[in-house]
Design a binder for these strands. Structure first.
Length: 265
DNA sequence: GCGACAG
DNA sequence: ATCTTGTCGC
């Protein structure tokens, strides 16, 4: 796929102020409303995907292409793998690389990993209808997490799926209550989110999977937020549709496994 | 100064 | 994210 806004290529050489300034611009260009033709039913993945390698499919040509992206790290480079899925099957896999130039800094993740992601996505030949990124989208200090950054860079619908909350406040404490599979709890902007009014819903805790027994053990919910061209509620609906029994969405699960192998080679 | 902090 | 085998619990 092709980069639509080259000016937003995440350059690790920028100083922190320039990075933050770029994020404000990105947030201003981002659309946190539905601008796509997707429905949960259309993207639904009912069974866990087992084949990590691309397979040829004559069917499903009419179904949306959902791409999962994940990174792994080696000594001095980040490796990114983008896995394209259509109709519950892997149809293409692309790899990207970029030297690791800056450390991980909360809020500036895209400038550490974005180069490798862009490299992988530029190699992808199919046109994705939705990208699922590891990390936050709108749940970010400047509403420009990695999912939003990549979405605006390529002008493609994206959602962010994180395992931990970066910022924002859930409307209900999730740490003490047991959430059933399928439940969600809205996350609102607070003082840490500098670019929008407090109380704005910027994402959800989403319980993609849960243990049957309401015992002492529970699965931690995912943190879902819109990246670009997707509304908050829709982002969670779509993520729910691409989960197939595991905690993580199938696209990220497969990308996770694929990048793991790719990184140690 | 202290605490918080995606991957 | 990453260093890493077995192990506790459903």
């Amino acid at each position: 796929m092709e980069i639509v806004r080259p000016g937003y290529l995440p350059d690790p050489a920028l100083d922190a102020d320039a990075m933050e300034a770029m994020q404000r611009d990105i947030a201003a260009d981002a659309t946190f409303a539905d601008d796509h033709g997707l429905t949960p039913d259309a993207v639904a993945i009912d069974e866990p995907i087992e084949e990590t390698d691309p397979a040829q499919t004559t069917f499903d040509g009419d179904r949306p292409i959902v791409v999962g992206v994940d990174q792994a790290f080696r000594e001095e480079e980040a490796v990114s793998v983008a896995v394209a899925i259509r109709g519950g099957r892997v149809i293409e896999r692309a790899v990207g690389h970029a030297p690791l130039e800056i450390p991980y800094i909360p809020g500036l993740l895209a400038f550490r990993e974005g180069g490798a992601i862009a490299d992988a996505l530029e190699t992808l030949t199919v046109a994705p209808d939705l990208l699922v990124l590891d990390g936050s989208g709108r749940i970010h200090y400047r509403e420009a997490g990695i999912a939003t950054h990549v979405g605006v860079l390529f002008d493609v619908p994206t959602v962010g799926v994180a395992k931990n909350l970066l910022c924002g406040t859930p409307v209900e404490s999730v740490s003490d209550r047991y959430l059933d599979a399928g439940e969600r709890v809205a996350i609102e902007a607070d003082d840490d989110v500098e670019t929008c009014a407090n109380g704005t819903t910027i994402g959800h805790f989403y319980q993609s999977r849960q243990y049957d027994t309401p015992d002492r053990r529970h699965v931690n919910p995912l943190v879902v937020s819109p990246g670009h061209r997707v509304a908050t509620g829709t982002a969670t609906d779509l993520v729910g549709a691409v989960c197939a029994g595991y905690k993580l969405p199938e696209p990220t699960r497969i990308a996770d496994a694929a990048v793991g192998e790719q990184a140690r080679e």
